[in-house]
Design a protein around this nucleic acid. Structure first.
Lengths: 219, 219
DNA sequence: CTCACTAAATGAACGACGTTCATTTATTTC
DNA sequence: GAAATAAATGAACGTCGTTCATTTAGTGAG
């Protein structure tokens, strides 16, 4: 009897073929974030986009935290670490770090999530670490110093990713400028020289880290 | 007629002497965090501790965000930057950075707040920046490179503070260990050598940054 | 083939949280 | 002394993450 109603609401009960999956949820979450930012990423909005009731999500993800974990692992695939296979260590680190920061600057709210979340079962994330570790070892790093060095670089990268999303006038001392003349003047003279402030800080720190770590290796 | 009832509930209307203030709200928030962590820091819990209705808080703070801003500024006073007045640049940076990281490791949830929040009207925060800037200038840093260097150090410090609050088994590759042998082995050999993993990474990165930045200055 | 079991959807409901608003009372200002 | 402002109460709201009973479809054992 009933004709097919394409946009009709789904009846209750298990649908003929699966509607949801980790992949589809992660994809929808990414689209949502691009359109509405992380504030727009709510379980309801996610469900709406997937044309599903919010509670249906909980048949696949145990919590919103888990969705964020999937997201983090997926976002990690956007980081370009290919240079470790071809370039010398310093160049590879430089290219990897810029890519890494760029990706997470657009996903700053994930940073606190990542930093605290175990990497277990995050295959894509582990893939990156494996290749980066290979690059360090190939450059002659002793095995026991590889992970601390990577963690140090990552800490800098995460902090810098947060810094990118800061407003450009973050250091505006406002009415208190008179009380803090040295700093106020230094802020002016660094922004005055053109170019993005966050980029300048990242470049300075990254180059410092690269030469500093390299020097540690020589000792 | 009515005897004084010390623990009686307050009547509506403005009380004879002020009950709330920025200082008292910030203090109560800190106590609350110490006892119940940042998850326990809700406007209701804050109000309860101050023996006040939740809505009363909004006569003083425009939002919870503003309370966090106060908190951030207050927490900043716990950072010890006194070494800039007495020690040589590298030693001062080292001592400041360790203190800074230590403080914010205990206040990791503030990190994303800080990184995005303008410093305007945060007098205590500006006080620190002023003194740090003075130290850099005294060490011969050109004015236009002071702020990028400070921001680079801060980015590293914030990222490292997040790292401290990560679980120690964050790099446990679990069932996937077989697929990523180099990284898995490197993780084992770095944790095996005793000592705190986060501390080792922070030390490596900080020393790298200090020598790297110092070298940039020489050029 | 059938029957139990499991997977996956709906929709109603909950509790917590941040926040707003009308109201009341005290203090400050003119 | 009157008017304006500051600061409290208490009720209410909307959103969000999450749970649960219910319904339906696929799956596997005998």
């Amino acid at each position: 009897m009933g004709t097919v109603r394409p946009d009709a609401q789904r009846r209750a009960g298990r649908p003929p073929q699966g509607v949801l999956s980790r992949t589809r949820i992660t994809g929808a979450a990414l689209e949502l974030i691009d359109e509405a930012g992380y504030d727009g990423l709510t379980m309801s909005a996610l469900a709406r986009r997937l044309k599903v009731a919010p509670s249906a999500l909980y048949n696949h993800a145990a919590s919103k935290q888990e969705v964020l974990r999937w997201l983090q692992d997926h976002v990690m695939t956007m980081v370009d670490f290919s240079a470790f296979a071809t370039e010398p260590w310093a160049d590879a680190v430089r290219s990897w770090a810029w890519s890494y920061r760029g990706v997470f600057a657009r996903h700053a709210p994930l940073v606190p999530v990542i930093a605290v979340l175990p990497v277990t079962d995050a295959a894509d994330t582990l893939r990156m670490y494996e290749e980066v570790a290979r690059g360090f070892l190939a450059a002659g790093w002793p095995e026991d110093r590889v992970v601390p060095a990577i963690v140090a670089l990552e800490s800098f990268i995460y902090g810098s990713a947060l810094d990118v999303s800061a407003p450009s006038d973050i250091f505006d001392s406002g009415a208190l400028a008179g009380e803090f003349p040295l700093f106020t003047s230094a802020v002016r003279s660094s922004t005055g020289s053109g170019g993005n402030a966050a980029d300048a800080a990242f470049r300075a720190g990254l180059e410092g880290l690269i030469t500093g770590l390299d020097k540690q290796l020589a000792d």
